[in-house]
């Protein structure tokens, strides 16, 4: 089932990063199949989908790392191919899932690399980088060697690096974009929320955020809109309340879910449907469920 909730493609829009009719084929398989999607300045768009649904391919195409076989990506109204690489780098930053960096730079030096598109690091850049480390709550690690940091700390160093890359507003408030590829993958739950809260905070009127996520509930809680991919196609896109419907989630992930309302925020709270046969034995719960069949060994406990 394909929901017709796609936004109309507006080729003239100058405040979006938009993909129109993207097709990418590798080895006879369609990685992206006529996919159209746009991120507007000011919003957080979460991209969801099962493994292999095309999330990373989409992100790599939006960041000009891959060029589509068919279709086009436009940033602020101009095709990506028409942007000089350096000008593009001043307008959008990309957080990778993993970086192969294995050299003992200090955390601050890694963050400073985000200023490469702007020329040599100045003392203002050092100041920006120190503040960016503060943004991701690791200001105290500024002088630590990157190679001695944990996976989660490294991920946050790179987050600070992409933040300094689009740190300042552009002339005439031209929109900037932040593309995050599974930014929460190696983070503990507190830092997962901190990272999404940061994305929320940064999505101002001239900055759009696209974030690839696995956790449906993080998407429901922090995104303005969610897009669900399946087999390289856009299955649905819209506000979390609309797009995170049980039938769509079941189709995208093959997982039956129940949607509750978040007790505090009211946003959707997605709970996988229980399969009793794969649950551990919980005597107390079972007792509640069927009070009539209490067995003697429960009393012993």
């Amino acid at each position: 089932m394909k929901m017709d909730v796609r936004p109309p493609v507006d080729a003239g829009s100058t405040h979006t990063l938009e993909a129109a009719g993207l097709c990418i084929r590798r080895d006879g398989r369609a990685l992206l199949d006529d996919l159209s999607l746009s991120v507007a300045a000011g919003e957080v768009l979460a991209v969801l989908g099962a493994n292999g649904a095309g999330k990373s391919t989409l992100l790599r195409t939006l960041s000009a790392e891959l060029s589509p076989g068919r279709g086009q990506v436009r940033l602020n109204g101009r095709p990506l191919s028409a942007w000089p690489a350096r000008e593009l780098a001043k307008r959008r930053a990309v957080l990778p899932q993993h970086s192969p960096l294995d050299f003992p730079f200090t955390a601050l030096e890694v963050v400073l690399m985000g200023r490469i598109p702007f020329g040599g690091p100045s003392s203002e850049d050092v100041h920006r980088a120190a503040r960016a480390l503060g943004e991701v709550e690791i200001a105290h690690l500024a002088e630590r060697r990157y190679t001695t940091l944990s996976g989660g700390e490294r991920q946050r160093v790179h987050l600070a690096r992409v933040l300094v890359q689009i740190w300042d507003p552009l002339p005439e408030r031209e929109p900037r974009f932040l593309l995050l590829d599974e930014p929460t993958a190696s983070l503990d739950i507190a830092h997962q929320h901190a990272t999404l809260a940061l994305a929320r905070r940064w999505a101002r009127h001239d900055l759009g955020v696209l974030v690839v996520l696995h956790d449906l509930n993080l998407a429901a809680q922090y995104a303005d809109r969610v897009a669900i991919l399946k087999a390289g196609r856009l299955l649905a896109v819209g506000a979390p309340e609309a797009a995170l419907a049980p039938d769509l989630i079941a189709e995208a992930f093959g997982l039956p879910v129940q949607i509750l309302a978040h007790p505090e925020l009211g946003c959707p709270l997605i709970v996988p449907r229980a399969d009793p046969s794969s649950a551990p034995r919980r005597p107390a719960l079972r007792a509640q469920a069927s009070q009539t069949t209490q067995t003697p060994d429960h009393r012993e406990l």
Partner: peptide, 10 residues
Amino acid sequence: LGEAEAGHLG
């Protein structure tokens, strides 16, 4: 940082 990452930095 990686080839893709260098590309993203312009």
